[in-house]
């Protein structure tokens, strides 16, 4: 056998060994990385039922779901009209109010500012709705971002009305 062929065969063996080795190391590291992801007990806490019968129009209640606050607001007539009247062109993250609140009287949102995660304060800011004090994001009566650094509207979680007075979140 000539030297050249020998060295080609060696190159192949080296490359194959490195490749298998890299796959093995990757497989060994993955569990070490993945253990940090949300565990099964965290994922299991998925739904909450809330009794909303005592909420007056113009009032908001806040409940905890998956460690995050959920705002449930019973909106007044003027708030609903204001939210519906907004021209979509004026919005940073255009979304119709009717898509955000299936039942216009009830607005259910994750109460976490989409900027860096603070909890916005109610009945504040330029739109007399939600205002995040952390870096100054203003949201309107539909929870849509209007001014400030937040990129998107307040998130709408998955929820449904179980009956007239109970909302199931998750």
């Amino acid at each position: 056998m000539s030297n050249e062929i020998k060295s080609k065969r060696r190159d192949f063996l080296f490359t194959a060994t490195y490749t298998i080795g890299a796959v093995g190391v990757g497989a060994a590291i993955w569990p070490l990385v993945d253990q940090m992801n949300p565990d099964s007990s965290v994922k299991a806490l998925s739904t909450t039922e809330v009794d909303v019968s005592s909420v007056e129009p113009g009032k908001t209640i806040t409940v905890l779901w998956r460690g995050k606050p959920i705002f449930i607001r019973r909106r007044t007539k003027s708030e609903i009209d204001e939210a519906a009247a907004v021209n979509l062109k004026d919005l940073k993250d255009p979304e119709k109010d009717s898509d955000r609140a299936k039942n216009p009287e009830w607005l259910v949102m994750v109460g976490v500012c989409t900027h860096l995660g603070c909890v916005p304060l109610g009945d504040r800011g330029d739109y007399k709705a939600w205002f995040c004090p952390c870096h100054g994001s203003h949201y309107d009566t539909s929870g849509r971002i209007r001014k400030g650094p937040a990129p998107t509207n307040l998130e709408i979680p998955k929820y449904e009305f179980v009956d007239n007075k109970t909302i199931k979140i998750g």
């Binding site: 940090m36 949300p38 965290v42 998956r66 900027h115 860096l116 995660g117």
Partner: peptide
Amino acid sequence: VVSNLFGAIPLIGENITAWLWGGYS
């Protein structure tokens, strides 16, 4: 606020924050 900074990364941001937190908050 600081851990949410990583949420600004496009596409994988939310996976990264969940990984950092080991949860949804």
